[in-house]
Amino acid sequence: MRIPCPCCGWRDRREFTYYGHETFLHRPAPDAGAEAWDDYLHNRENPAGPTRDLWYHDPCGSWVVVARDTVTHAVAGGEGLA
């Protein structure tokens, strides 16, 4: 599996650390309530098909949102956060 890093181009997945679904980018307000925080922290879809998740490119320090398909394993692309 290879992942496009916005700084370094397509790189082997062994250079990346996986975090989770891009949901982690949508942090609720501190007072959003237990349910919103529970959803943010724990509740995830388990899609068969396209998904977007977060990978960290250890050599350059870039976080990447990777668009990939859990069925075909195809990696469609990646974007930096910043």
Partner: peptide, 14 residues
């Protein structure tokens, strides 16, 4: 910690 700091900075306060 470095990974975490990069995430917080790039994800929430870029």
């Amino acid at each position: 910690v470095m990974r975490h700091m990069d995430f917080v900075q790039q994800g929430f306060c870029a």
